[in-house]
Structure formats: C-alpha cells, structure tokens
Amino acid sequence: MATFTCGVQTSAPAATSLPSSRRKGALSPRGNVTTRLQARQGREAQEWAALVRQLSRDGRPLEALALFREMMLRREWNHHGGRRPDGSPLSTVLRGCEALGAVRSGREVHAFVVRNAEWLVDLCQTQSSLINFYARCGFLLQARLLFDRMSERDVVTWTIMLMAYANCDGFEDEMSVLFDQMLCSGVEPNPHTFTTVLRRVRLQQGHQLHCYIVKRFLDSDAFVGNALVDMYVKHGSLDCAERVFDGIEDKDVACFNSLLSGFGRTGDAEILVSLYWEIGMAGLAANQATYVGLLNGCASSGMMSLSEQFHTHVILNGFGSEVIVQGALLDMYAKCGDLEGARTIFDNLGTKGRSIVTWNSMIG
C-alpha cells in the first residue's frame, strides 16, 4: 500500500525509514527509528505516539505524519486487544506544520482524519486541532466550515473558534453571534473562553458579559479579572476597571500593569505612584510592562521630577537597556520638554534600536 513522506508518494517500507543523514539523533541510543521499531513485536500505542511526538519536536512533521499513518494502517495493531488509537499525536504534527508554514501537509493530515475518523478515539480533540491549524494559518473560512460540520463540540472547540475570530480584525460581530450560539447550545464557557471574548467585545456587551461572569463567581479569578480590567481600560471606563481590580484575589503583576496602562493615559500621577508601591507591598516584582506604563503616564502628566524618579527606578531594577523601555523614556523626556535628555537616550539606542516611533518622538 502506498504512503507518503515529505509530500512524495513512496512504497510503505520507504515511508518508515528516516533519511540516512538524520539517523543519528535523540530518538534512540542508536538514532535509528526504523531499527528500533522493527526490533519490537506487538508495539503499543504509547510507544508509537512518543516517536511521532519526538519527530514533530525535532522539526520533522512530515516524517511524523508518515510514521503515524503507518501506525494506523497496521492491522495487527488496530485490532490488538480491541483497542483503537487516539489522535493526540496528530495535534503535535499539526503544530509542527503550522510552525513550518506547511499548509499542504496540514491538509494531508485533514484528509487522513476524514478517512480514518471511525478509528480515532478522540475525534473531537483532533478536529479542534485542525480548526486551530487552519485559523492560525489564515484560513478562517475553512476553520469555520470544519467547525460547522462537527457533530460534537466541546468547550475547547468553541473557544478555539472564538479565538480565531478574536485574532482577526473585523470579525467582532461573528464572534459575538458564535458566543451566543455557544450559550444556547448548553456548553458552559471556561475562563479561557471569557478572556478570549472580552478582548473584542464592545462596552455594552462587556457589561453584559461581566454580569454573566459575576453570577458564576469568576470575577475574583485573576485570569478572568485581568481580562475584564483590560476590556474596561480599552474602552476608557477606568472606574469600572478599578472596581474589578479591587475585587480580584491574588493579583499578579499583569493585573497591576493593566490598570497602570489605563491611568497612564490620563496622567494621574497620584494613582500611578500608588499602584507602583502596591506592587512592591504585594510582594511582586515590577517588569518591563510596568515601567512602560509608568513612563507613559509620566509623559502624559508632564511632571519632570516624577519622570526622573521613575527613570532611576528603571536603571536600579535592570531595565535601562531594554529597547522598549528606552523608547518610553525617550518619549517621556520629549513630552516633558527635556530635549537634551531625549537626545541622549536616542543616541544610546543606536541604529538597530531606533524605530519609526522613536524617530517621531524626536521629530515631534
């Protein structure tokens, strides 16, 4: 029976043999996958799947697919003990195809799944991986067609399709309609579903979703709460963002950064300083995003003395050489009227560190 590897039709024995230049590797002590497989009788699914995953991790998704196909076609394995193979290795193969931009190979995986659907134990999981593959490769229509044809969908499937819309501009309405369909179907959203939808909803929809989240006691969850804060900050509703922030238990630095970015646009120096010290009091360490938010706030406030203090903290905490932070420093000094300080930072950036943003800050 014919099989394929690297998109070329070959005979079955050739498809299970790796190129000689790749036989020395981390797959086995001798580096020879074929020898290792042939040396064992009555192979188990876990052993095959492990080899498929290893090939995918090594950046060889087509060989992994060929090996998985042989695994599925071996009659003695398919019927051994009445067990059926699972499709989890295919998810690994699809991630490898995505990383390499191997769309044709991903389509071959899809065709293989269609032909062998009755053998796969976890067909829903495998189809969800295919939807994710098509969406990430820019084939949103194909992802949706596959989604619509699925006879069974779980919360992961719905969330992947929602994420596909959320990652594309101009599909907010489609995402909202799909989320309503999910609720009507009786599938309960999980925290990942909420954070995905909150990225793209309008303010009124965000309020409604917030109420839905509160009823399920998820608003105190740091993961969901941070998404709510981000949503309100994006729409300029800082009072709502602050109320959500205050109700979050076990805040992480990302929660503080979200609120900092919002108040940074207003230039409210008092709140910026308060939030910065709260980070330390909570036992958390400020990161690059923290200082970018603070410096942007200083730029909006125009307070030179506060700007210099935060610049000192940036240096003391080891973020002075970060290009993004330097860009924020440059913008801060320029907007505070200290052109000499801005020029010094601009010169330190060097040619590689300069971007259209830093040039505009200097010119403006």
Rank of each mutant, 00 (worst) to 15 (best):
F4L: 09
Q9G: 08
A14G: 00
A15F: 03
K24F: 13
A39K: 13
A45P: 06
E47L: 13
A49G: 07
L51V: 08
D58F: 06
A64V: 07
L67W: 03
E76T: 14
H80V: 11
G82R: 05
R84A: 11
G87I: 00
L94H: 05
E98R: 15
A102C: 09
R104Q: 14
E108P: 00
R115F: 01
A117P: 00
L123P: 00
F133D: 02
A135P: 05
R136G: 12
R144A: 09
L145H: 15
E152L: 11
V155N: 05
M161P: 05
E174Y: 11
M175A: 15
S176F: 10
L178E: 06
Q181I: 04
G186K: 08
P189G: 06
P189D: 06
T193H: 05
T195S: 14
T196Q: 06
L198R: 01
R202M: 10
Q208K: 11
H210Y: 10
I213T: 00
I213V: 13
F217H: 15
F217G: 09
L218H: 03
D219V: 11
V229T: 07
D230E: 13
L238Q: 01
L238M: 08
C240F: 14
V244T: 08
V244E: 00
V244A: 04
D246Q: 14
G247A: 12
A254N: 08
L259Y: 04
L260R: 01
G267Q: 04
D268V: 07
D268E: 11
E270R: 14
V273L: 11
L275R: 00
L284A: 00
G293T: 01
L295A: 04
S301H: 02
I315L: 15
L316Y: 09
G318H: 06
F319T: 00
V323S: 13
I324N: 09
V325C: 03
G337D: 09
D347G: 04
T358V: 02
I363H: 08
